[in-house]
Amino acid sequence: MSETTREPEARRLATAARDRVRFEEDALALSDQVYRVARHLVGSREEADDLMQETYARAFRSWRSFTPGTNLRAWLLRILTNLNIDRGRRIQRQPDSQPLEEGDYFLYNRLEESTDGPTDEDRVVQRLSQNDVVEALSEVPHDFRDVIVLVDIGDFTYADAAQILDVPIGTVMSRLHRGRRILKQAMAASAVGGDG
């Protein structure tokens, strides 16, 4: 190979190496945010740690398939949720098999009923403890919990959540709608007792 043909090739390799380094730095800079979501998607810290390492190993191998300028955090979480499913940590189930849940005002009404004297919104929400929320979230079935974690905790848009979970946007909306209601029922049961 002559000097003149080697030069563009060397330049191309240098550019690719620079792009890869930048990609890896950008991905690592998002690791705290990805971990935060991962930790809620799986049951334990150990599982989250394993999943994070698998996710980043795969992301670094397939960095060329990421389109610069698109949402890298969503791209990483798409890998993570796919790996989570592949590893069989989750039992896929039909969301429609869930029993019908109460309406959106249910939690407020339950907490208000159980509060003595005059109430305002602040006092009602104070009936809940951190533990009530954490326990309730763990009781929400995976399909519903995933969208709550992504949208309400991870701040993803409906469209990003749909891309990450590889489901239509309408499915994200319906799971979010039902998931929040299931969460509220579980919080009511935890805070007030009874069957919710």
């Binding site: 935060r36 930790r39 809620h40 929400v125 809940l128 951190q130 009530d132 929320v133 954490v134 979230l137 309400d152 905790i153 969460l183």
Partner: peptide, 8 residues
Amino acid sequence: FVRQAVVI
């Protein structure tokens, strides 16, 4: 409240 409660 939920967002703050689930901070890990």
